[in-house]
């Protein structure tokens, strides 16, 4: 995987993450809803950053799908929280790929900072520390 392919994969992951966090947010309220809003904004910012990097590389950013299959039914606070945690873990692995494929220092630094951000976010969503956040399972 080269840098552009990894950027596109990360962008596709962010599109999917935005969809999933949006669905989960609809089942949350209070502090958890605010957490979801914050998480959504982070994914949106990272999507925009990735789009810009893809454009800068002379490529067309991959578009979002109209909808995504969710890995689990989201029907209440517990399932919504679990979905966001799953998204934060899986998107971290996509950024792990980007770190490995990065050819430009600025891209690598962005990917590292984003991975660390999602590692922290996992704790917000009830996750326990992992030995290698960002690893492909």
């Amino acid at each position: 995987m080269n840098q552009v392919e990894a950027l596109q994969a990360a962008l596709a992951g962010e599109h999917a993450a935005l969809y999933g966090v949006g669905v989960a947010g609809g089942k949350l309220s209070g502090a958890r809803f605010r957490d979801a809003t914050d998480t959504f904004e982070v994914h949106r910012d990272n999507r925009d950053r990735l789009s810009a990097l893809v454009v800068a590389a002379g490529e067309t950013p991959v578009a979002a799908q109209p909808a995504y299959d969710l890995p689990q039914v989201v029907s209440n606070t517990a399932t919504a929280t679990a979905l966001v945690l799953l998204i934060e873990r899986r998107i971290a692995a996509v950024y792990g790929d980007l770190i490995e494929a990065a050819e430009q220092p600025a891209v690598r630094t962005f990917a590292i900072e984003t991975l660390l951000g999602y590692a922290t976010s996992q704790l917000t969503w009830g996750g326990a520390p992992l030995p290698f956040p960002g690893a492909t399972a």
């Binding site: 990360a10 992951g13 599109h15 995504y68 299959d69 399972a137």
Partner: peptide, 20 residues
């Protein structure tokens, strides 16, 4: 309306691609 994208879009593993 839901479409299966995991096989089409590599980044969609964020939702449905890998073992957790």
């Amino acid at each position: 309306t839901v479409v299966v994208t995991a096989a089409l879009v590599p980044g969609a593993v964020a939702l449905a691609g890998c073992k957790d």
